[in-house]
Write a protein that binds this DNA or RNA. Structure first.
Lengths: 353, 353
DNA sequence: TTGTAAGCGTTATCAT
DNA sequence: ATGATAACGCTTACAA
């Protein structure tokens, strides 16, 4: 946004080729000398027709370079063959990876993917859900904000296939694919404890968002299991943002009794924490140990390398999409099975602890 | 993909609410006791109608919670109000950021965004272009692979609005938004030279892809301008991949006369190079200077921090989308202006050089 | 095997 | 101001 310098080279076009409108099935039929229905049959490869007409139609289609019109088909078949994905922010690697997984999976089955970013704004989320549901999608993958749970339930109950991803609606009433955040956090904090740490801080994400709340639960559980008191001083909020986490880390350092270990609830915030500690000459892995939730590319090139709870991100996307496609394809069954899949995360120890 | 552990909680659903099919305009009209056309007029807010019918129709629509059917509208209006984006890989931050920018811009104008990943495979690219053009999109944003230039020209000439992004088709015959890669690379290498370096290596991306070729051109230009010979030993290929770049860096180190500075053609490869140098106890910024093309989050937390050529990624996405939308909305003009916008990159000096 | 025609859910023109 | 009705481009049941 900052860099506004650019050159604009404008070329006046000589002429655009005759933008004649695209040929329709009717054109093909006419050219082939058969009826519209006949043409549809051979191009759609169903019904019966003589090899003679088959050839005539195929030739005509080729000559006109006919392409079937997806929208018209969609209307007739009551299926757009596209699915929608609504998430907080696709430029976050986590979501980018999930989107990639979903698109891979969807395209394999001939589905298109349409995306929407909400920035955790439930109003935006609502808008996307609404417009996507205006016939544009056959199914929905959504990572719902806490405020829209009832809306999503309603949409699901009205017959639109949905599977929530990375977060779930209370009561198991909508299919979901999630990570076991409690267990992941528990593993991380338990590891700290096993190394002798007692003063363990957490930098949470956004309260009310399932992943953040559950990671905090896992943190609490580990401390409680080992009879360690949970000090409110050690519970900081980073809102899943780099800068906020930087601040939070600073405040932790300024405590009269600073923690000896910090569990950071996502990678973006882990970046902020690294920076805060580096800026204050605190040696990570020596003065303060660190574990982040979520693996990332840079974890291995930063010094010391970052230990983390690795989530099976790509797999999560694939499973969610497969679940959804299954629903989409069984759309008729009134009495459905609701799958709530929960995947385990894995603790990866590197040098930051 | 590696972590296959997961729990599957299956809940049998009590019953799905009567999945009655969605109300149509006809239903609304019936309920309101007016004709279908009338209902369409008030809901579409055009034509004329009495305030009485207006109220009746609006009430009926609300009571039935009627939503207009996007696909049907699209068919009638010959516009899907969605644009398509085809790129190499959305899970790469560069593309994720661009996609975000485009989606922001598109949604602001009421357009949906549908995406496709090609992994630089021209066959996949072709498939996406083809299916997207089956009426699904009103316009296309493409970062074309070298093999599909003629296909893209053809599609463009046939009347489908296209703007290429980050790469362009030879001959300025299709609108584009790109970065001035030659200048960016030139800045980086010139900086090396001004610091006294003579033995400057480059780790290129994929030959034949515009961004890689142009960055190499910029490298050559800087060397030539200062009368420095281009040594083939110093020209390595990293294929835009972390691992390949790691290898390439290793080979550079093993040269009898290793370079004193390396220019790396993207951030992914810069990661590989960092790792290679770290693994071999080569001190970056001391034994070997480094500049990468493309800014990244981790550039400031890695030690030493990474100098780089920063591209205005988000802006590029916005400009491309705005260009495209302009084309989409003037679709009728036979004689069009072809904009080829080229944005400047900016050298950011940190501690790696 | 083939043609006819009735939709799919809209918009928009043409009478009235 | 309102109601018919013809598209949009396709699929498919029904007749022939």
């Amino acid at each position: 946004m900052t860099n506004k310098t650019f050159a604009k080279i404008i070329i006046y076009n000589v002429i655009l080729e005759d933008a004649m409108k695209k040929p329709t099935l009717k054109d093909v039929a006419n050219k082939a000398g058969v009826s519209l229905g006949m043409a549809s049959r051979v191009l759609g490869n169903y019904g019966s027709y003589s090899s003679d007409t088959k050839e005539k139609v195929e030739n005509a289609a080729r000559d006109l370079s006919y392409k079937k019109h997806g929208i018209a088909r969609s209307l007739k078949l009551k299926s757009s063959r596209t699915i929608g994905m609504v998430m907080s922010n696709i430029s976050n690697v986590f979501w980018a990876t999930i989107t990639r997984a979903i698109e891979d999976c969807a395209s394999k089955s001939g589905y298109h993917l349409i995306v929407g970013n909400t920035d955790e704004d439930f109003k935006k989320e609502r808008d996307y859900l609404e417009t996507f549901c205006e016939g544009y999608v056959d199914g929905l993958l959504v990572s719902p904000s806490p405020n829209n749970h009832s809306m999503i339930k309603k949409i699901y109950r009205s017959g639109m296939p949905i599977v929530t991803i990375d977060r779930k609606i209370g009561g198991f009433c909508v299919p979901s694919v999630t990570i076991d955040n409690i267990d992941g956090a528990y593993q991380a904090v338990s590891h700290f404890i096993s190394k002798g740490h007692r003063d363990i801080a957490i930098i949470k994400g956004i309260d009310g968002i399932m992943t953040s709340d559950q990671r905090f639960q896992g943190y609490c559980k580990a401390l409680e299991m080992h009879g360690i008191e949970i000090k409110t001083d050690y519970v900081a909020a980073g809102l899943f943002q780099k800068e906020k986490a930087y601040q939070a880390a600073l405040e932790l350092l300024q405590l009269s009794a600073p923690p000896s270990a910090i569990f950071v609830c996502n990678e973006t915030m882990a970046m902020g924490v690294y920076k805060a500690l580096q800026d204050n000459q605190v040696e990570i892995g020596k003065h303060i140990d660190l574990i982040g939730f979520g693996d990332t590319d840079w974890a291995t090139i930063v010094r010391p390398s970052l230990s983390c709870v690795r989530q099976p991100i790509y797999s999560m996307g694939v499973m969610a999409c497969e679940s959804l496609l299954r629903l989409v394809q069984n759309n008729d069954t009134q009495e459905a099975v609701i799958e709530n899949i929960c995947m385990k995360a894995e603790l990866i120890i590197r040098n930051s602890c």
